[in-house]
């Protein structure tokens, strides 16, 4: 990802009409490009360079032996938790679902307005995790209230979609 993007951005600097505007992107683009290439070929590099590229360094280790000993004694002892949402038997894993639902929320917001997309997103999200219906509805109302609150307070066109409701949800 970094390699392709920086490669493209470096190449694009040759198209700039004003030479000085290319200097900074060329400099930082080169750092990204060379760094990424080094990371890709790290196992073929001589040992001294490979250490610089791949080895972890940390000025502050964060914990010495005595602290690590206390940490070892205490960290396994955590309060029992109980799940209030049911994660089993769903076709998508939780991260994937969250990613897809966020993208869907933004896309829906673009089409029909963020104000209308917000309760739909919250309702789908909370139903997916099989929350109690009352909790689901409460969060949905809260989501809509947040969107409407932003609209009222900051006067941004949150009630306007780019495809539908282009002149506002309330006409």
């Amino acid at each position: 990802m970094f390699l392709v993007t920086s490669g493209f951005m470096l190449l694009e600097t040759t198209q700039f009409r004003i030479g000085s505007a290319a200097r900074f992107p060329r400099l930082v683009g080169a750092v990204v490009f060379v760094g990424t290439v080094l990371l890709l070929v790290e196992r073929f590099l001589p040992e001294s360079i490979r250490r610089f590229v791949a080895e972890d360094v940390a000025i502050f280790s964060g914990s010495d032996a005595a602290v690590a000993d206390v940490k070892g004694r205490t960290e396994s002892d955590t309060t029992e938790t109980v799940a209030v949402t049911d994660s089993s038997g769903r076709p998508l894993d939780d991260t994937m679902f969250t990613g897809v639902s966020v993208a869907g929320y933004a896309l829906l917001g673009y089409m029909i307005s963020i104000f209308l997309a917000t309760p739909i997103f919250v309702l789908i999200y909370t139903r997916w995790y099989r929350m109690r219906l009352t909790h689901s509805l409460l969060l949905t109302v809260l989501g809509a209230a947040i969107a409407y609150g932003f609209y009222l307070l900051l006067n941004v066109p949150l009630l306007r979609g780019e495809v539908f409701f282009t002149s506002g949800v309330f006409g």
């Binding site: 209030v84 919250v122 999200y125 909370t126 969060l139 969107a147």
Partner: peptide
């Protein structure tokens, strides 16, 4: 529960 927090943070982020 974290699943109560996540949709609200996402809404606040997008809005």
């Amino acid at each position: 529960d974290t699943h109560y927090i996540i949709p609200m943070i996402i809404v606040l982020s997008i809005v």
